[in-house]
Design a protein around this nucleic acid. Sequence first.
DNA 1: GCCCCAAACAACGA
DNA 2: CTCGTTGTTTGGGG
Lengths: 261, 261
Amino acid sequence: MPELPDLEVFKGNLEKHLLGSPLLAIAADSPGNVLPPKGPVVDQFLHQTLVDIQRIGKELFFEFADQKSFAVHLMLNGMFHLCPASDQAAAVKSPIARFQFHRQTLVVSDPKRLCKIRFMPKVTPVPDALSPEFTLDYLKERLTRNPLLNIKAFLIDQKMVKGIGNAYADEILWASRISPLSRSGNLPPEAVTELYTRIQTVLHEAIISIRQKAPEIIRGEIRDFLNVHNPRRQTSPTGQPIRVQKVASKTTYFTEEQILY
Amino acid sequence: MPELPDLEVFKGNLEKHLLGSPLLAIAADSPGNVLPPKGPVVDQFLHQTLVDIQRIGKELFFEFADQKSFAVHLMLNGMFHLCPASDQAAAVKSPIARFQFHRQTLVVSDPKRLCKIRFMPKVTPVPDALSPEFTLDYLKERLTRNPLLNIKAFLIDQKMVKGIGNAYADEILWASRISPLSRSGNLPPEAVTELYTRIQTVLHEAIISIRQKAPEIIRGEIRDFLNVHNPRRQTSPTGQPIRVQKVASKTTYFTEEQILY
DNA sequence: GCCCCAAACAACGA
DNA sequence: CTCGTTGTTTGGGG
């Protein structure tokens, strides 16, 4: 449920509480969601200090010394919890794993048990939407190499660019005035440039909005400010009626303002 | 173009002329259609006697001693020719390969060059529609294992059952009173049994019709007796108007008599 | 009309 | 709403 902007804010808030703390214990409450199945690998993390949290796409990477790290993907329903007391940590419903730091325990929970925790994760070379590696040239190259996709399917494909999900794809396409049904290969250069710019601005502005509305947030999502992917709105900010339709098998919100290429 | 019943008649007629004859020479006029690229393997066939011709699906298998065989698939436009004189054999247009037997030369030709000749062919375990291995239980098992296909797509899928092509699929479904648009998994047991029976009767009766109309045929096709897959007819034998429509990307003839499951 | 392949798309489970 | 796998559909080429 949370997408890139939410996760970016979670990252900052988790860093505030956990950076520099030693990891004292790990408990895998749902070993099936932990890859590889915990054991000797996991022991290497004990008494190590958390030096950084990175967000890549929809995953948070908890980084320790000597390249050791684990990655958490919340999938649809996963949640982070920070519990100062260990009895609180034990009380969290549907726990997947608990990471006991010096003063806080980080609990990952998921009632549907879809979320994934990977130890020593491999990182694929696909750039994150807000990383410097995601350049206009890269976007152009991917679009020309995959010219037959719906632009909506393209944007949410994590092998093209990491971090854009269903909701923000709609926001970005509306901001770019590009119909989600456009063929990826049909976008003229100006539209590609506009799309590239809007990917940055829509995501950055969403991060700012979320920080402002929920400064301490580490779970859930804030979406009430979305311009079109928003069931509570009937019209876009320009007054155009919002249409809802399946595109690339996903519920998609868009308006007639968006040009079909 | 020829389907299972035509090929079954070709088989009998080729056997009449060739069985027991030694193969004296092979010429690959279009080596690209011959697999594997002729050479030492092919030489093993020389001076061997043809002991049997088998039809499996839409292929004819020419069998020699010691398990040696080659298989011919005519695809859309391939043709067999039998030429008593070698100058006749040399005059055939668009030759793919020539097999010179004692008194006759068998020529395979194809103006579109789509047909395939395989030496020492592997035979996949999928049963032919008229073989004893194609049982009612087998059909039921395949249907339940692949429940989401159009029944038309199912019948012409050579991985399900070998030998049924576009035209006879329509004939079989009409005889079974099953709409080609039915989902394979939706057929009730009675319909599956009816379908199984009609596969046998439609194909066997077609073989008899073709033998009667063209006793010596070894190429081309006889289709004027088809009940629905027949552009010359406007109505089925029961007087229902015949509809033409693409189903599973194939031109399909059917009537409203056929139940949609 | 045949078969194979690749891409796109849908369905399902985890 | 997420991802991965599997199966189905479609289009093109030989």
